[in-house]
Computed example of a mutant assay.
Amino acid sequence: MTDSVDPVESASDDGVDLYDVSTWEERTSLDGLAVAIYRLIVGTARVAVILLAFLILLAIGGLAALTDLQVGVLTLLSAIPALGLAAYVYYSDVTTNEPLSLLVATFLLGVLTANFAAVLNSLARPAFQTLGFIGSVAFFFVVVGPVEETVKLLAVRLHAYRRSEFDAVVDGAVYGAMAGLGFATIENSLYITQNLGTGTEMDLGLGLIGMGGGITAVRALAGPGHVIYSAIAGYYLGLAKFNRENAGPIVIKGLIIAALIHATYNSTVGIGSGIISTLTGLPPLAAFFAYVILFDGVFGLYLIRKIKRYRDAYRHAHAEDTAHESAFRSEPTEFE
């Protein structure tokens, strides 16, 4: 929404003082107090959201990757493909490099905000379970896709979005990818913890690989999807930051695209891998790998093309600026 101007201000000369009439700025002590209270409220709300997310993380056992070496190793292994994809998005940013501190903060916020999705998904799931397959598909499209993509975007919005370092549209994709990496990491950790079972003791060796290797491999291929979806939504968040008059619809568009891709994956991965297994004779796990690689490849290419389009426009614009500067410098002055 563009900044509107009151009729008094628009009809008045620039030299007229309209403070507290139709304009406002911080002048008095009371103004300063109002500004301070507002900032305190906003800051407290952000801290409250982060604290609540951390408490949920503790409640659902999300710190197992830090407290249990077995879970930690498997979680780290499962996150490698997603980390590789996030690194690619980072290095494809043709503008200034994003600071490591902001990338790490966004990753951690992605870990924390994922817990909101865990709670909301758990609360909503029973309402869809009685509807069988149709209910599962509806659950993915109505709840899982929109909720998970929203909380990942929240991870970016809470901190990185507000910083001056977020100074280009494509930065949204970079921070979105980091939020997706954080989300995938904690999700993988929870899945691995559940599949290994609580209180199970095993050596770090063949026993660990045998019991945790299967779920680790599955989660490793699930991770890049989260990075792709949230990088797409993040790109639109970046677009919204520099198009304030249409920021709301732009953010919603990004969320719709990301949520639809996410829900489509969840709804088709079982059927798709089954078809591949039937047609090719591949074992179920191999067929699953084939389908995920194909699906992520299609939408990963969509993300890459979007980033490439921005990169080409950036380079073209800067090449024009350089050409104009060179032409200006080469023009003789009246003193020459």
Score class of each variant (00 low, 15 high):
Tyr91Glu: 07
Gly110Ser: 09
Glu98Ile: 01
Asp68Gly: 05
Asp93Ile: 15
Val73Ser: 04
Ile80Cys: 05
Leu74Tyr: 14
Leu83Tyr: 08
Leu76Arg: 05
Leu69His: 04
Phe107Cys: 04
Tyr90Asp: 00
Leu109Met: 12
Pro81Leu: 08
Thr113Trp: 02
Ala105Ile: 03
Val104Asn: 02
Ser92Glu: 14
Ser92Thr: 13
Gly84Lys: 06
Ala105Glu: 07
Tyr88Arg: 10
Leu100Gln: 08
Ser78Asn: 08
Asp68Val: 00
Thr113Ile: 11
Val73Ala: 03
Leu85Val: 14
Tyr91Ala: 06
Leu76His: 01
Leu108Met: 04
Val71Asp: 00
Thr106Leu: 01
Val71Ala: 05
Leu85Lys: 06
Ala114Arg: 02
Thr106Lys: 13
Leu85Cys: 10
Leu85Trp: 08
Leu74Val: 02
Tyr90Leu: 14
Phe107Arg: 03
Leu77Asp: 01
Gly84Gln: 11
Val89Ala: 06
Asn97Gly: 10
Ala87Gly: 12
Leu69Phe: 04
Ala114Asn: 14
Thr75Arg: 12
Leu69Asn: 08
Ala114Gln: 04
Ala114Thr: 14
Leu76Met: 15
Tyr90Phe: 12
Thr75Gln: 13
Ala82Glu: 06
Ser92Cys: 09
Thr106Gln: 12
Ser101Phe: 03
Ala86Asn: 03
Leu66Tyr: 06
Leu112Met: 06
Val89Gly: 04
Gly72Ile: 01
Ala65Glu: 09
Gly110Asn: 10
Thr106Phe: 00
Ile80Phe: 10
Ala105Val: 00
Thr113Ala: 10
Leu69Ala: 10
Ala114Cys: 11
Leu76Thr: 07
Leu69Gly: 05
Val89Arg: 05
Thr106Ile: 10
Thr95Val: 15
Thr67Trp: 04
Leu85Thr: 11
Leu108Thr: 05
Tyr90Trp: 09
Ala87Thr: 15
Asp93Arg: 15
Thr106Asp: 05
Ala114Tyr: 01
Ala65Lys: 03
Gly110Ala: 13
Ala87Tyr: 07
Ala87Glu: 14
Thr67Val: 04
Leu76Gly: 15
Val71Phe: 00
Thr106Ala: 09
Tyr91Pro: 05
Leu66Glu: 07
Leu74Ser: 01
Leu103Pro: 00
Leu100Met: 13
Gln70Tyr: 01
Val73Trp: 05
Leu83Cys: 05
Gln70Ser: 14
Pro99Glu: 14
Ala87Arg: 01
Val94Ser: 02
Ala86Ile: 10
Gly110Trp: 06
Leu76Phe: 15
Thr113Ser: 11
Tyr90Glu: 05
Leu108Lys: 03
